[in-house]
């Protein structure tokens, strides 16, 4: 893509003219064009609810203004871009052409594949086509949210539009999953900052999730864990145990099988997270969490141990006592708890 100096200057003058700016902007733009570019980012939306984008509006370090004005060049993002229709399409096309193989592509949403993908179209193209043209030409792809990472809510049974994840369809660039419904913005931004600062991907788990955010079970760092271990459970919303901040396992908490940093990263800069206010973890960073039973039914199994319906008694208790402690000190306490009192 080597431009001659004349072409280059001409391009700049055209840009300045197109923007209706005075000619004095030309030298500044030339200078800027020679300087280090902010890395281009193209953000695609498919079958989603825009919650992942909304979550970015809640981020504070960096906040969204710093992110888009200083750290990255957000060349295409349907929710916030000024342009629409043909002008929006032009922004997308321009950036893909100019930055082929160099841009970061963010995918928000699952991609429907039933009936050749007609259930989601943008500018007349199906999601599947757009993935091919845009995502496959990126340097790296971030699948933000559980929809892009694992299909999400529209992929819940019976998955009517046969939704696939970004990773299922993308060929070529590495795909990093940042699941969550929506994910903590710190996890998305953490990835971006890591990538820009160290120039490489962070360590990922086997589901393609960065270990810095999805390395441990919620249950491992949960503030209510001591109550779990000692058998103090909330039995009903608003009940005694609930009012005392006891463990939410019996109210359906999925923390024991969910990998995420919610208890350490927290949300919205006020130290909040769902378990913190009294609602069990929904398990939203895991594939298929929509089909793992009711959000209000206790997990039948913890760390491989079947838990007796009647009273939190682990049927694997003997094995635990024999020293499978590493998998589940939990089982021991649960067994001891007998009825969870």
């Amino acid at each position: 893509m080597a431009l001659t100096r004349r072409e280059f200057l001409k391009g700049i003058s055209l840009t300045v003219a197109a923007l209706g700016l005075p000619a004095e902007f030309i030298p500044r733009m030339v200078q800027a064009a020679m300087a280090k570019k902010r890395p281009p980012v193209i953000w695609l939306h498919f079958q989603e609810c825009t919650g992942c984008t909304e979550t970015l509006l809640r981020a504070s370090h960096p906040d969204v203004a710093k992110l888009i004005f200083e750290l990255i060049s957000l060349d295409y993002h349907e929710t916030i871009m000024a342009a629409a229709g043909h002008q929006a399409e032009k922004s997308l096309h321009d950036s893909v052409q100019a930055n082929k193989g160099k841009y970061i592509c963010v995918v928000e949403g699952g991609i429907p594949t039933a009936d050749k993908g007609i259930h989601c179209k943008i500018a007349g193209k199906t999601g599947v086509q757009i993935i091919k043209e845009v995502a496959n030409n990126a340097a790296a792809v971030i699948a933000i949210g559980t929809c892009a990472a694992f299909g999400g809510v529209q992929a819940a049974k019976p998955n009517p539009t046969r939704v696939k994840s970004a990773g299922d369809l993308i060929k070529g660039p590495p795909v990093v999953n940042i699941p969550g419904c929506p994910p903590n913005p710190a996890n998305f931004l953490g990835f971006i900052l890591h990538y820009l600062t160290f120039g490489k991907l962070p360590a990922l788990d086997k589901l393609g999730r960065p270990k810095f955010a999805y390395g441990r079970l919620i249950h491992d760092h949960c503030e209510r864990r001591a109550h779990f271990d000692d058998g103090r459970y909330a039995e009903e919303f608003g009940g005694e145990g609930h009012k005392l901040g006891y463990c939410l396992y019996k109210l359906g908490c999925k923390g024991p099988q969910t990998y995420a940093n919610c208890p350490t990263a927290r949300f919205n800069d006020v130290g909040a997270w769902p378990v913190g206010i009294g609602h069990g973890c929904a398990g939203c960073t895991e594939p298929g969490f929509w089909d793992n039973g009711s959000f209000y039914e206790r997990l039948p199994e913890i760390a491989g141990l079947k838990v007796d319906e009647a009273g939190g008694k682990a049927t694997g208790a003997v094995a635990v006592a024999a020293g499978v402690h590493a998998v589940a000190g939990v089982g021991r306490k649960l067994a001891k708890a007998k009825g969870g009192k």
Binding site: G51, E54, T55, L57, R58, C181, P182, F237, G238, H242, K243, L244, G245, F267, N268, D269, V270, A272, W273, P274, V275, G276, I277, G278, H279, A282, Y296
Partner: peptide
């Protein structure tokens, strides 16, 4: 949103509204 998260656990997608009331424990 910060104010909201204090009673709702997080936002977007609050986690305090449940059939029969709310999950926000008061004490």
């Amino acid at each position: 949103n910060e104010a909201l998260a204090i009673i709702a656990g997080k936002t977007p997608h609050v986690q305090n509204v449940i059939v029969g009331g709310v999950a926000t424990a008061i004490n």
